[in-house]
């Protein structure tokens, strides 16, 4: 059975990726999955060597074939997303164009264009990769700007990570989850065995954490919580610890503010490959997580009916 720990954060900038990369190094060899596709930064710390490149397509988009277009303007009249623009002079419409990034791929124009001038291919949105790193295989992606993350991509990345874990006989997948609380983060959580939420001691940090904990409770996924930069505002860190326990999640540690996060990033390393209070605390957090997952697994085996 593969154990998957998904690292999530709600709001951005909490140090989620730095923590995820550190855990990958401590746990390695494992499989790493980067589902934070909008701001995919994990590769800067793990420096993957790309082995396989896949194209990623999602949805469709309208492409206007100018040689067939009769410039009737019906597409612009019907489009709810203002995706068509018309150039006009006193003789009427001189040219129709599809406006950049505006098409949502609904297909209304395609269906109604009498001239058959609108093509409707699958939309190319970027690439995803299978790579090697110093802590094991890694699956990650790079999207074109304006594409946005999607449940589909997260799903593909995680699925491939699981397949690689099976092929290489590795017990762990560590996933850098998507930010926010929307569709991509739900896609990063479905079927995960454990979650680590990295938060920070601020008004918005605890606000987001509550929403995340509601989500993981809904999925019945055992959840660990740690606070990064806890010493910036300790009362909020203490409140988060209480909140975590009240929500039935597992508080695993307070990481101090440490310049090593920035320094390690500069050097393309993870925090635990430097020395300092941040690195020490992340090691402790990892020991706690491993211990508790180990216990849970043993108890789980015990309960399993023959």
């Amino acid at each position: 059975m593969t154990t998957e720990l998904v690292v999530i954060s709600g709001k951005g900038g909490t140090g989620k990726t730095s923590v995820a990369a550190s855990l990958a190094v401590l746990a390695g060899p494992i499989v790493v999955a980067d589902c934070d596709v909008d701001a995919a930064d994990l590769h800067m710390l793990l420096r993957p060597e790309i082995r396989v490149v896949h194209d990623f397509y999602s949805g469709r988009e309208a492409i206007l074939n100018q040689s067939l277009c009769v410039r009737c303007g019906l597409c612009a009249d019907l489009c709810e997303f203002d995706a068509f623009t018309r150039l006009q002079d006193e003789t009427g419409i001189t040219r129709m164009d599809v406006r950049l990034l505006a098409c949502e791929g609904c297909g209304v124009c395609v269906r109604h264009c009498a001239a058959g001038a609108i093509e409707f291919p699958e939309k190319f949105r970027g690439h995803w990769f299978e790579s090697d790193t110093r802590c094991g295989p890694m699956v990650h992606a790079r999207l074109l700007v304006g594409s946005g993350n999607s449940g589909k991509l997260v799903n593909q990345v995680r699925r491939r990570a699981f397949e690689l874990a099976r092929q290489h006989d590795l017990a762990w997948v560590i996933t850098d989850g998507s930010p926010g609380i929307g569709c991509p983060v739900i896609a990063s959580l479905t079927g995960a065995t454990h979650v680590l939420a990295v938060t920070e001691p601020s008004v918005s940090g605890s606000h987001d954490l509550l929403r995340l904990l509601a989500l993981t409770r809904h999925f019945s996924i055992p959840t660990f919580v740690c606070v990064n930069k806890f010493d910036i505002y300790e009362p909020a860190a203490r409140e988060i610890e209480h909140m975590t326990k009240a929500a039935g999640a597992n508080f695993v540690g307070n990481i101090p503010w440490d310049r090593a996060f920035a320094v390690a990033q500069q050097e393309g390393r993870t925090v635990v490959e430097t020395d300092g209070p941040g690195a020490r605390m992340i090691r402790e957090i990892w020991d706690r997580i491993r211990e508790q997952i180990g216990q849970a697994t043993q108890e789980g085996n015990h309960d399993e009916p023959a």
Binding site: T17, V145, Q266
Partner: peptide, 19 residues
């Protein structure tokens, strides 16, 4: 002023230039 910051800045620069 970090590598993450620079990487993500380049992405949004690409977007605002596109627009």
């Amino acid at each position: 002023p970090t590598p993450f910051g620079l990487h993500d800045l380049k992405l949004i620069v690409e977007l605002v230039r596109l627009l």
